[in-house]
Nucleic acid binder design. Structure first.
Lengths: 243, 243
DNA sequence: CGCAGTGTTGAAAATGGTCAAGAGGGGTGG
DNA sequence: CCACCCCTCTTGACCATTTTCAACACTGCG
C-alpha cells in the first residue's frame, strides 16, 4: 500500500476543502510522517495515553468517545474524512477521549513535535489549526444544546441530518442517500438515549418517511422537512481547511 | 475608570495563570485596545452578530448561551476571569452564541483584525490561543458526557463541583465556600433540566450536606464526597495561559 | 402598595429507561 | 454442511426519572 502524496491528495480536491497555496502543501508534505491503515473496530487512540502522533482522516468513518466511571459510554462525535484526530494529545499532553474505527480507515500521520514548527513557520496553517479547533468547539456547543434542549425525536432527527449534511458536503453518497455504517448503539450513546428508545424513535421517523436508516444506508427523502423536525438549519456546512 | 496595564495586571499574578515572557506581555499590551465595563444583565455579544472585537474576562461572571428555534435556552458554559470571549467572531466570522453578564464585568478588549498579526508575529501566543480553544473544546466534551450520561443529581453535583474548582483555582472565595451569583434557572438551562427539578435536586444535595447553594454563595463541606456523587475527578484544573 | 423576579413545594402527566424475549444474519468449528 | 453462537435489530410491558402545571412565600423596587 503506497502512501498518497499531499500534492495529489484526492481528498483535497473535494470542493468542501479550501484550496491551499503551493507553499502550504509543500510544508504539509514534509510535515506528513506516514499513513496509517486500520481495520474496523481498531482503537486508534486511548483515553489517558500520550500519543506521539496525531492524524487527519483520509478515508473511512470512526467515532470519538469517552467512558465514565460508571461504565457508560458517551460518543462525543462521529469522525469523517477531513477530521483532525488526536490533536489534544499534541496540544494538551494527553488524550481526553478514545477514538475507534467503525469502518476500515486510512489516516494521514503527523508527528506531534512538528506542531510547534508549524506554529513558528506557517502562521496561516497555525491559523487553520485554530480555526478547525474552534469549529469543532462550536459543533460541540450545538451538541450540548441538542442533549440539553431537544426531545428524543428531535435529537435523532438532528443527528441524522448533521451526518447526512457532512457526508454530502464531502460528496459521499448521493442526493437523498448516504452510507451510514454505525450501529444504533453508537447513535444512542451519542445522543444520551437508550438503545431501545433510539430504535423506536428511528422506527417512527421511518414511518413518517422523514428518514430511513438501515443496512448501513441512510435515506432522507426531504431534507427540509427533516430539518424542521430536528429544529435545525438545513444548510450545508461551510468550506473548511484540510491539514 | 483608568485602564489596567498588562504589565501589572492583577489577574496575571494568580498562580492559575502561566507566567509569560516579557516580550509576550509587551505584545499583549499593544494588542489590547481598551477595557469594557458592563452592568449585570448586559448582553455583551449577540448570536449572529459580527463583532469586531473579542475579550478576556478580567473580573466578574457571565454566561454563554444559545437559543433554539423553539425558544428554549441552552447555557453552554459559565464565564469566569481568564476566559476568552467572542473569539468565534474573530475566527469564524460570526458569533454562534450570545454572552451575557451575570454580575458587573470588566473585560479586556482586543481588535479582531489584530488576531492575524498575533499569529504571524507571536507563534507562542498563537499556540496559547489554540491551547485555550482546545481546552474549551475538551470541557465541552465533558459537558456532552454529563448531559448524555449523568443522572439529574450527578449533573447538578458535577456542575457545582466544576464551578467550585474553577473559582478556587482563581483563588476566589475560600476553602469550602465560593460566591455563585447565578440563578437556579441558569443552572437548569446549563444542565438540560427543568427549573423545578433543579430546585428539588439542590434541596436534596443540601439535605445530604454535599453542597449548599443559596444567597449567591456555594458551600461544599467535602469536595471529595461531592466528586464521588458527581462521578467526577476532584483535581483542580491545570494552569493555563492568560491573554 | 403592588408588581416583577426568584425560590419553593405538591400533584399529575409524560417522556424516556429498564427488563425481557425473540428474529435474523454472518462467522466458525465440528 | 450444518449447528451453534454472537451481534445487532426489534418489539412489548412495566417502571421511574423528569416535566409540566399550579400555587405560594419572599425580596427589592418603582
Amino acid at each position: 500500500m503506497t502512501s498518497i502524496s499531499c500534492e495529489t491528495c484526492p481528498l483535497r480536491r473535494k470542493s468542501f476543502f479550501r484550496p491551499f497555496e503551493e507553499e502550504q502543501i509543500d510544508f504539509l508534505a514534509r510535515f506528513k510522517s506516514g499513513e496509517l491503515t486500520v481495520d474496523p473496530g481498531t482503537h486508534i487512540l486511548i483515553e489517558g495515553s500520550t500519543a506521539p502522533q496525531f492524524y487527519t482522516v483520509l478515508d473511512g468513518m470512526g467515532l470519538r468517545y469517552k467512558t465514565l466511571e460508571n461504565g457508560r459510554r458517551q460518543v462525543i462525535n462521529f469522525l469523517f474524512p477531513g477530521d483532525l484526530v488526536g490533536l489534544h494529545a499534541g496540544l494538551l499532553g494527553e488524550m481526553k477521549h478514545s477514538v475507534e474505527a467503525t469502518t476500515a480507515m486510512r489516516l494521514c500521520v503527523f508527528k506531534r513535535d512538528d506542531l510547534w514548527t508549524l506554529f513558528r513557520n506557517q502562521p496561516s496553517l497555525a491559523y487553520d489549526v485554530t480555526w478547525i479547533t474552534a469549529t469543532e468547539e462550536h459543533f460541540l456547543g450545538e451538541t450540548v444544546a441538542t442533549l440539553g434542549q431537544r426531545t428524543g425525536t428531535q435529537r435523532v432527527a438532528w443527528a441524522l441530518l448533521k451526518v447526512y449534511q457532512r457526508l454530502r458536503a464531502l460528496d459521499i453518497g448521493k442526493e437523498g442517500e448516504v452510507p451510514l455504517p454505525y450501529r444504533q448503539q453508537d447513535m444512542a450513546d451519542a445522543l444520551g438515549l437508550s438503545l431501545v428508545h433510539t430504535n423506536k424513535t428511528l422506527a417512527r421517523l421511518r414511518e413518517r418517511q422523514l428518514a430511513s436508516w438501515g443496512e448501513g444506508r441512510l435515506r432522507i427523502p426531504d431534507v427540509d422537512t427533516l430539518a424542521e423536525v430536528a429544529l435545525a438549519d438545513a444548510a450545508l456546512p461551510d468550506m473548511r481547511p484540510l491539514l
